[in-house]
């Protein structure tokens, strides 16, 4: 029990300070806990730039395009959709052309390679288009190491197949590379391993990765030594391709005939032997045995 007035003041002071600190710390902790579980909302609120908020005033449905976790996370809508900085927006903006230019602004070297490739050449554009985002995606571009990235090596085949769906895909899926890759052996060659990505050139262009002169080196990326013999033959051909792979087709036919010959020979023997046994069931065993041995 404290008797003196000064003593009592100290007690009141310390108690007051202690309680206040206690309350503040608890409140802060509570606050922290709250923010932990609502971080996204808070991040959203904190991270959406003023520029983007402006766009979202009219384009609320585009909010889903705010890239989360992609490499372009920190960019604004207008970093790529540059002409739309002006408001009201001009009516003759060609979005496709504009975006190509936007990508070029940062990715100039790649864009240069791409322009001289078979996909970059304007003559080869079709309705599906071969723009940057045809293979890389648009609002969901992840780092290439990310397994969700469209242009990650493991996913890249899908982009190519979206247009080149026909003989080349059939040939690839039949080939050992295709069978292996499609069944989990991911070290096997994909489209871009042989053809490249930004600088894809046609076979007859001497600079192409798949030109006759360069093919041995392309194969040697995995098959260690560049053998000139690797270039002597057609790829993407199945044995049913009489036009592009006649020797293969002939080999196939020879073996089908062998298979059928073997099947006819062995099946006939079994079938006729069994039929004979069933037919001769009426005869008793000893007689049958003697008759069979020709005695």
């Amino acid at each position: 029990m404290i008797k003196s007035g000064v003593g009592k003041s100290f007690v009141y002071l310390f108690t007051g300070l202690f309680v206040t600190t206690f309350i503040i710390i608890n409140l802060a902790g509570l606050f922290f806990l709250l923010t932990l579980f609502t971080q996204v909302a808070f991040a959203d609120a904190a991270e959406i730039s003023q520029v983007n908020k402006n766009c979202l005033t009219c384009h609320q449905d585009q909010k889903k395009y705010l890239v989360k976790g992609g490499v372009h996370e920190k960019l604004n809508c207008t970093s790529c959709h540059m002409s739309y900085i002006q408001f009201p927006h001009s009516k003759d903006i060609n979005i496709a052309q504009e975006i190509q230019k936007s990508c070029q602004m940062c990715h100039a070297q790649t864009a240069k390679e791409y322009t001289v490739s078979v996909h970059g050449d304007e003559k080869n554009q079709n309705e599906k288009g071969t723009t940057c985002w045809s293979c890389h995606g648009s609002h969901d571009i992840y780092k290439i190491e990310n397994p969700e990235a469209k242009h990650n090596r493991l996913n890249s085949n899908e982009s190519c197949i979206s247009c080149h769906d026909g003989r080349v895909v059939e040939g690839y899926n039949w080939s050992f590379h295709g069978v292996a890759f499609n069944n989990g052996y991911k070290e096997a060659a994909t489209c871009i391993d042989c053809h490249g990505s930004h600088s894809i050139l046609p076979e007859d262009n001497p600079a192409s990765m798949v030109s006759i002169d360069n093919r041995p080196e392309t194969c040697a990326q995995c098959h260690k030594t560049a053998r000139p013999n690797f270039a002597k033959g057609s790829e993407h051909a199945t044995p049913f391709d009489k036009t592009n792979a006649l020797p293969l087709y002939i080999t196939l036919q020879i073996f089908i005939i062998l298979i059928l010959f073997d099947a006819v020979k062995d099946s006939s023997i079994a079938i006729f032997d069994l039929m004979r046994k069933i037919n001769s069931r009426k005869v008793n065993t000893k007689e049958k045995h003697s008759r069979d041995l020709g005695q």
């Binding site: 050992f176 194969c219 040697a220 098959h223 260690k224 030594t225 053998r227 013999n229 690797f230 270039a231 002597k232 033959g233 057609s234 051909a237 044995p239 792979a245 020797p247 293969l248 080999t251 196939l252 073996f255």
Partner: peptide, 17 residues
């Protein structure tokens, strides 16, 4: 890659069939 020392690609394709 060893076979390709002696055999052209189209023969290796045949070997697979």
């Amino acid at each position: 890659e060893l076979a390709a020392i002696y055999l052209p690609r189209w023969v290796i394709s045949i070997f697979r069939v």
